[in-house]
């Protein structure tokens, strides 16, 4: 159990910003039609806003900061 919590903790520490970008920012961008201009759909989900969120998250991860 402790090992699981530790590996989860490591994962969140390293990839938390990327997940936040993908899920949180992606969902927000998806709500604004502006970001739906490029239509790359999979299972009826427009992937472009999520891709944009993922890129924001990756940039934040490698910069180590959001701002």
């Amino acid at each position: 159990m402790k090992a699981l919590v530790e590996s989860l903790s490591d994962h969140i520490e390293n990839w938390g910003m990327v997940w936040f970008g993908l899920i949180f920012l992606g969902s927000i961008f998806n709500e604004f039609s502006l970001f739906n201009a490029l239509n790359i759909s999979l299972l009826n989900i427009n992937l472009f806003p999520y891709l944009l969120g993922l890129i924001f998250g990756l940039v934040a991860k490698y910069r180590g900061t959001w701002i």
């Binding site: 919590v5 989860l8 903790s9 969140i12 938390g16 997940w19 936040f20 899920i23 949180f24 969902s27 927000i28 998806n30 709500e31």
Partner: peptide, 24 residues
């Protein structure tokens, strides 16, 4: 507290998929 924080963050990530603008 870290465990509580994970629960809170998970709830927020689930909510943002269902209610994006409301969560924001």
């Amino acid at each position: 507290g870290v465990l509580v924080s994970w629960v809170q963050k998970s709830i927020q990530l689930v909510l943002v998929v269902i209610f994006p603008l409301e969560t924001l």
